Amino acid sequence: MTSGPVGTPEGAAASEAGPPADGASASYRQGSIDLLGLVAYGELSAFERLAEDASTSPTLADKVQMAAMASGEFTHFQLVSTRLAELGADVMDAMAPFRSPFDTFHRQTAPRSWLEGLVKTFVGDGFAADFYREVAAYVDAETRAVVHTVLANEAQSDYIVARVRAGIEDDPAIAGRLALWGRRLVGEALSQAQRVAADRDHLTDLLAGTVDRPGMDLAAISRMFSRLVEEHTVRMAQLGLAS
């Protein structure tokens, strides 16, 4: 989930050019599958975490809301699975390279309270969603539409913002702790995004572009990560927390 759309990624217009020539088509296709595998495992992980967080919700209304959010994430997972099948790829195979880094990230950022769990969903998942959108600028229109559809969760964002702000109003002392938590989350998320971009050659190729499909140079990739951090700052402000 995410707090809202980011600005148009650099090189987004190049994504309208269609698939690359035969010489680059295999790498391009695998890059698209890698992106969808990332999104699929992210949605599956979000489903698991939200379902678990529902069990510790402070009110029955919160429990219902969290369960509904979890259900929505699983529906998104199914949408991505369908798109992968259309590309001739199996969702289990596509997710496999990302299971270990994702699970490690979630172990290292296990929330200690229900509110910390909400902040993690809003800040951590929001950062990841912004990264996926940036990469999606370089895939075909059908794949890009699926990515944007599964990442559009404005209603969830409104709920989380309202509940975190209410929690801070009830206990102002927790604001500092939640702000530190948010900063830790974005640091971990930024490191994970950079590792994924570096470790998956086909994703790197997707961002770098092809002869007939311009991509990003190193400076543009650096600016992309700067944009991700800027969006995090906006997201923290929405929660009423210092970034």
Rank of each mutant, 00 (worst) to 15 (best):
V6W: 09
G7W: 07
G18L: 07
A24R: 00
A24W: 03
S25R: 15
A26P: 00
S27Q: 11
R29W: 02
G31F: 00
G31D: 01
L38I: 02
L38E: 00
A40P: 01
A54E: 01
S57D: 00
A61K: 08
V64A: 14
M66A: 06
M69E: 00
F74H: 02
Q78L: 11
L84V: 03
L84Y: 03
L87K: 03
A89Y: 01
V91N: 03
M92D: 10
M92K: 04
D93I: 08
M95C: 15
M95R: 06
F98V: 02
R99K: 09
P101F: 05
D103Q: 06
F105N: 00
F105Y: 04
H106N: 10
T109A: 10
P111L: 08
R112K: 05
G117R: 06
V119K: 04
G124R: 01
R133T: 09
R133H: 14
A137F: 07
V139G: 04
D140P: 05
E142T: 15
E142V: 13
T143E: 06
V147T: 06
H148R: 07
V150L: 13
E154F: 07
A155S: 09
V161I: 15
R163V: 10
V164F: 13
E169A: 14
I174L: 15
A175M: 07
G176I: 10
L178G: 12
L178R: 11
A179Y: 09
L180K: 07
W181A: 13
G182C: 06
R183P: 00
E188N: 15
L190C: 05
A193L: 06
R195F: 13
R195K: 12
V196T: 02
A197Q: 05
D199A: 09
D199S: 12
D201G: 03
L206M: 15
L207P: 01
V211F: 13
L218Y: 01
A220L: 14
R223H: 14
E230L: 12
E231R: 09
H232D: 08
R235F: 06
M236F: 14
